[in-house]
């Protein structure tokens, strides 16, 4: 893939949801491009719509209006099944709360996306082992989330996000649940991933974290403040 190709292009994205009888306008016309090998931070106070934006970009949610192109394909109209495939093959997601399955070992958690891509068991295990080694968790492969530290859990989550060679890795407050030292380690891991050519979009309200990114997008009241 050529450098600086646009992967995600969101045009005039609006998202309204209903909290009881009150309409909440989380996004009110957001335009954003994510290019290949971008390292973008989305910042803003809570309620600014940053999580909603990243959910729409990562196809976890659909916009109320606006157009969203993924590699020039308009996907705002895709079906649930097609969106599931996109989440599986195009994107990796790292959550604030790790979001690992508690009953599965680190290895199985990392291999989980491959299960939904129809990769056979042996290949899944091999790839998961490689990725875990890369994130420095070779000796934690058979541990369950409750047997690991927060930093280790987040590394497992990052490994899971990486396993399908995603075009974009989305991270929603990845250091929010970690102490500062571990947080720094995790951020160094992200830096390294971008270094290796990955594309990262990160939601944070911490300017120290945002400082790692090459591009900072500030959201306020559902609008981009400064690009």
């Amino acid at each position: 893939m050529k450098k600086h190709t646009v992967i995600c292009r969101a045009i005039n994205i609006c998202k309204t949801y209903w909290r009881g009888k009150v309409a909440v306008e989380a996004l009110r016309g957001v335009n954003i491009d994510i290019k290949n090998n971008d390292y973008t931070s989305i910042m803003g106070p809570s309620g600014s719509g940053k999580s909603t934006l990243v959910h729409i970009l990562s196809c976890l949610d659909t916009p109320t209006s606006g157009e969203y192109y993924l590699e020039d394909k308009l996907i705002s109209t895709y079906t649930d099944l097609e969106l599931a495939k996109i989440r599986n093959e195009f994107f990796g997601f790292v959550f604030q709360s790790f979001s690992l399955l508690p009953r599965l070992t680190a290895l199985d958690n990392v291999a989980l996306p491959l299960m939904y891509s129809g990769v056979n068991k042996q290949a899944r295990v091999n790839r998961a082992k490689d990725i875990l080694a890369k994130t420095g968790l070779s000796d934690r492969m058979h541990h369950r989330p409750n047997e690991m530290s927060g930093g280790e859990c987040q590394r497992v989550a990052i490994a899971r996000a990486l396993i399908n060679n995603p075009k974009v890795i989305f991270a929603d407050e990845p250091t929010g649940n970690l102490d500062s030292r571990t947080g720094t380690e995790i951020m160094e891991l992200f830096d390294q991933l971008v270094e290796e050519g990955n594309t990262v979009v990160m939601v944070t309200h911490d300017s120290n974290v945002a400082a790692h990114a090459r591009k900072i997008v500030k959201l306020k009241d559902g609008l981009i403040e400064h690009d």
Binding site: L60, D80, L81, A84, K85, R87, N88, E89, F93, F95, S99, L100, L101, L112, P113, Y116, S117, R160, N164
Partner: peptide
Amino acid sequence: EIGIRKAVGASNQN
């Protein structure tokens, strides 16, 4: 768990 599975690519059918 269902949310996590869906986030990593599980379809409704899965």
